[in-house]
Amino acid sequence: MSVDANTMLVIAGMAVATYLTRVAGLWLLQLANVEGRARSAMDALPPAVLMAVIAPTVLATGVAETLAAGITVLAAFRLPLLVSVVIGVASVVVLRALTG
């Protein structure tokens, strides 16, 4: 197994940059005043980020993905997570075959 010097440097650079994005949130937290309106905004952060991450797949990829996302939502209101995920994946495979 070989390790190239430039490759090592690039991997180290990407590792440091990535870790900086991960700890920056902690530092930001110490600056932020989490009362009142800022508190409401921070409380909305987890669902807002989750939604923003999946929106391109759910809304802008294809009919199959959008429909499968709807089926997953319905499943998730009643069923355990793992079952809902299996239903979601199965429906996207079937719907892709039907609409593709």
């Binding site: 650079g13 990407m14 994005t21 949130g25 937290l29 932020a32």
Partner: peptide, 21 residues
């Protein structure tokens, strides 16, 4: 690639700030 790492992973800032609470 270092610049790309910052751009692609900038979402971690939000996630870290949220879970850090």
């Amino acid at each position: 690639l270092v610049f790309t790492a910052l751009v692609v992973n900038v979402r971690h800032v939000l996630m870290g700030a949220s879970i850090g609470r």
